[in-house]
Design a protein around this nucleic acid. Sequence first.
DNA 1: TGCATATATGCAGGCATATGCATATAGTGA
DNA 2: TCACTATATGCATATGCCTGCATATATGCA
Lengths: 128, 128
Amino acid sequence: MKETLKAFKVLSDETKMRILNILLERECCVCEVMQALEISQSKASRGLSALYDVGFLKQRKDGLWSLYSIDKDNISGYKSQLVEAVQEALKHNKKIALDKERLKKASRNGARCNSSFDGDAICQPNAT
Amino acid sequence: MKETLKAFKVLSDETKMRILNILLERECCVCEVMQALEISQSKASRGLSALYDVGFLKQRKDGLWSLYSIDKDNISGYKSQLVEAVQEALKHNKKIALDKERLKKASRNGARCNSSFDGDAICQPNAT
DNA sequence: TGCATATATGCAGGCATATGCATATAGTGA
DNA sequence: TCACTATATGCATATGCCTGCATATATGCA
């Protein structure tokens, strides 16, 4: 039961729901998530690891990069239903569409994420 | 998006998830929910109204009683997927089975809920 | 009209979560 | 070994949620 509650709770957060959505497009490193969602590095990293902890994501390392993707092979039962619910709920959402647009232009180290680009400064507050 | 997040959030709480589950069995008044889950009156009432606010439940009044049930006619899309995910996640859960057992014995005013039976006192802490 | 019962809700305390900031950690290449 | 970059995380703070307690509200009945 605790596990189930955690799965619902992780997804009841805008950032994490958006992260899950772009990962449905393709595998991403933390850096690309930052760029796609225009969020800070710590926010991206924490969001990803929260989704990982609950079992929605798998992770692999490639040099400096930490690459996350949907753990399709291990998502089943209610968890796959949750992922489908997220997709269904947001399939016509504007913000999500923007995220996906930006994701296309995003790239590993393409933006020199941590230094020159500072998501913290750019990211607007919780406007919906 | 806010609406979607609220739907996930409401269900990321044990009490509300259990309430949703027993309502899948049948319509209940607040009193019966208290008895089935062995929780306090305010907890039952607030849980029900939270689920109502998000659109999972409908409500009708019958004299003193406030009767809640799953709003099947208006639950569609991602919300019905969420309800299904809850059912799937908890279909073999022991606590849920107990809730349903107690629900069978529960009745409107059968326990003189507010006075003699005090859920607050009986209900054990958050053991899982 | 007054009492009993069922439900809703204001308030306050406690707890969990989200997040920015700063920093630690770990690869990479010179 | 050192500088650089990507990622993870400790700390402090702000915010929101859960819940019990007490009380208000509403309905039925004598």
